[in-house]
């Protein structure tokens, strides 16, 4: 079985005033029709890795890889028009800052409708119905009200779900979800994960789930990559996360505040220089 996505030796760097900054270094993994989690230190390159797969890195970023392929298509040599078409139809990414990524001057509903209409020929009326259904599916309580609101008029969690609704309505084969539930309360979080889970199980979607929430990742994903300083330092079955080997991962687990455990101050990581190598 050939994987849907192959990433081999991905590197992303920036020119800065103090020299070249290597944000992602030698990242390799493959993805099938599964839920792959990516966790890691803030600034370790998780979002940039996702953006590189989408072709959404900033112009100042220098992206190289031995191989970056989706369904046999070489993404590094694909012309911009083909990448744009892929992005529209087959690859989607829920960005980390949902409100910033939504168009501030267009209502939530219209943004979802327009996304749908660039993918499918549907009447205006049907598009509206489907957008409302999708908002309801992501547990928006009053879809008709939220449909007409602008991004600055919705709460953090509502914006995040609007963004998820917009990405899902395009029916992607591969979805990269960057902290998709970080603003959601736990009950809604589980509903949204339920939707993503069904898309993977029933429709064979591939999912890259970037999150710092170890509890969620270990209960939801199949496999987890742990990133530190631009590298993958550990790959582990999600259910085994509690038995991680790398000191960063182990330290990470120890830092989580748990109700009922009085630890003041919380343990912090003693970051070793050799972890960066």
């Amino acid at each position: 079985m050939t994987p849907m996505l192959t990433v081999e030796d991905l590197a992303i760097s920036f020119a800065t005033r103090t020299g070249r900054f290597e944000a992602v270094r030698g990242v390799s993994f493959t993805l099938g029709r599964e839920r792959l989690g990516i966790v890691g230190e803030s600034g370790s390159g998780k979002s940039l890795t996702g953006r590189a797969i989408m072709g959404l890195t900033p112009p100042s970023a220098d992206v190289t890889a031995r191989r970056l392929a989706f369904d046999g298509i070489d993404l590094l040599t694909a012309p911009p028009a083909q990448r744009r078409a892929l992005r529209g139809a087959r690859l989607s990414m829920v960005l980390q800052d949902p409100k910033y990524s939504l168009d501030p001057v267009m209502s939530i509903g219209r943004q979802i409708v327009e996304t749908l209409r660039t993918h499918e020929r549907v009447s205006r009326r049907e598009a509206r119905e489907r957008a409302l259904d999708m908002l309801a599916a992501v547990q928006i309580e009053n879809p008709a009200r939220v449909f007409d609101l602008y991004p600055h008029e919705v709460s953090g969690g509502m914006g995040q779900r609007a963004m998820i609704a917009m990405m899902l309505i395009a029916n992607p084969e591969l979805l990269i979800a960057d902290e998709p539930t970080s603003a959601l309360d736990v009950t809604v979080q589980l509903e949204v994960l339920g939707i993503l889970d069904r898309l993977v199980t029933d429709r064979g979607m591939g999912l890259i789930f970037i999150s710092h929430d170890l509890r969620l990742v270990s209960s939801f994903c199949d496999r987890v990559l742990v990133m530190y300083a631009g590298r993958v330092v550990e790959e582990i079955a999600a259910a085994e996360l509690a038995h991680a080997r790398h000191p960063y991962t182990r330290g990470l687990l120890a830092c989580v505040p748990v109700p009922g455990h009085d630890r003041h101050p919380l343990p912090v990581l003693d970051r070793r220089p050799e972890w960066r190598l």
Binding site: E41, H212, Y248, P265, L266, V268
Partner: peptide, 12 residues
Amino acid sequence: ALDASVQAEVLN
């Protein structure tokens, strides 16, 4: 928006 290690530092 923070991973558990940075979260612990900020909370402390």
